[in-house]
Design a protein around this nucleic acid. Structure first.
Lengths: 247, 247
DNA sequence: AAGTGGTCTAGACCACGTA
DNA sequence: ACGTGGTCTAGACCACTTG
């Protein structure tokens, strides 16, 4: 008799949901909800397999999913324990709009310009498309709680670009997602520089004030460029927060 | 007869290296070296298992490792192909020193101060240790190609801190690694602000010039705080480049 | 010695996409 | 209809850690 956590799960063999996920999901929720404290011992996989009436590889796979997310850590000869939350996997590739909304900051967006045209050489290069193919360039001012926060310009292939009205209501990434565009990865570069006169006027800063800058190229699963964006942020109101992991 | 890539591998059953890794590693190298172009079809797992004389789950596991790294993508009913390099997984949690060295920038470090003392309340909070326990606070000036680039201050528990001389020769993260400290995750916040007079003097910038700032807390696998650092960078000479991934 | 996770086998059935 | 990857079984042996 040990005092480990043995999840009360009954697997449904008729369900479309794989068994290993039926097992992993409740444990995952128990961990992220804080119900299971860091360091809590988890039932070993042989016993769990017998108890839930699945094969050992199936129970094992459920555990491995959680190890992969950084929620559990295992030591041979010792057992499985809940990982401290600092070591959990990050929520990756969030959008500014979602970030602000999650913080309860009531973000608003004003589309400053929305221009459809044939790609010039630089634009074609950034999007990895043919010169002259249709692209949309849009500039937006993002505010939170009535204060201007960021100036964003984005470049997209026409066939992916959301409409002016959509962009006024939602974030770009949400528009893309709802249009069925799945972003897989993005490369971004974060820097800083002094505000130009135009930027200063729009952002309610002084000319020459330090601004955070971000350049991002987003790709779908096939490697196609979905979007290229260049933004400047007011560093007194926004910064980039992220979790890094060693593999 | 199809024209897919079938790796020429002979597995060594006497080796300590797991079979799935003996299979995955050569394929991984062929992809990252560019030998296999994006979109190249990979042998299906049933045929690979027979050919290499391993069970199907073993062949499958090798493939899954590569899928997890973003190197391969699979579609049920279709097959397995090499992922475009844009979608490959990022090299996570690099150190500034390594970054510069990889770029051939010949980084040098000057330790400006190295102070061992009992943690005050703020320091204890940052490192999640008891007030009064031994901590090391070190300030360093990092230069590349003779030009000052970053001003870094770090706070570490005494028992983990490298010596002054080690820090003058290598980057902090390399020192920690060689001391057997394995960093698992780190949280960092990137922002910007104007340079103070002191910073400006050390970094060869004007007072009030925009600087990139970074705060980072690094954790080992048990959730213990290994290091807390605060740095400022000259944005004309350095920026943060990273790849984000959706899970 | 006992218990844990790590690896591996030799099959099986199913869901999906293509032809 | 066929071939693909996705899931699952019921075992097995090994390596490592702890008592």
């Amino acid at each position: 008799m040990s005092d480990y956590y043995a999840p009360a799960i009954v697997v449904d063999r008729e369900s479309d949901e794989p068994l290993y996920r039926q097992i992993a999901t409740p444990i995952e929720q128990a961990i992220v909800s804080g119900e299971l404290a860091a360091g809590t011992m988890i039932e070993d996989e042989v016993s769990m397999a017998q108890r839930l009436d699945v094969s050992r590889p199936t129970a094992r796979r459920a555990m491995q999913e959680l190890v992969g997310m950084g929620l559990l850590s295992r030591k041979r000869g010792v057992g499985t324990t809940v990982t401290p939350p600092q070591v959990h996997r990050p929520i990756a590739l969030t959008s500014l709009f979602d970030d602000l909304a999650r913080m309860g900051a009531a973000p608003t967006t004003k589309v400053l310009s929305y221009d459809v045209h044939g790609a010039d050489e630089e634009e074609a290069d950034l999007l990895a498309v043919e010169v002259g193919s249709g692209v949309v360039r849009v500039a937006r001012l993002r505010s939170a709680e009535g204060r201007p926060l960021a100036l964003m310009t984005n470049l997209l292939p026409v066939d992916l670009a959301p409409s002016w009205t959509d962009l006024n209501e939602h974030g770009l990434y949400r528009c893309l997602r709802e249009a069925g565009v799945a972003i897989a990865t993005a490369r971004q570069v974060i820097g800083a520089r002094a505000a130009t006169a135009d930027e200063a006027a729009l952002l309610d800063e002084a000319e020459g004030a330090p601004l955070l800058t971000m350049r991002r190229t987003a790709y779908d699963g096939t490697g196609r460029v979905v979007e290229f964006g260049r933004s400047v942020y007011r560093p007194t109101l926004y910064d980039f927060s992220m979790t890094l992991v060693t593999h």
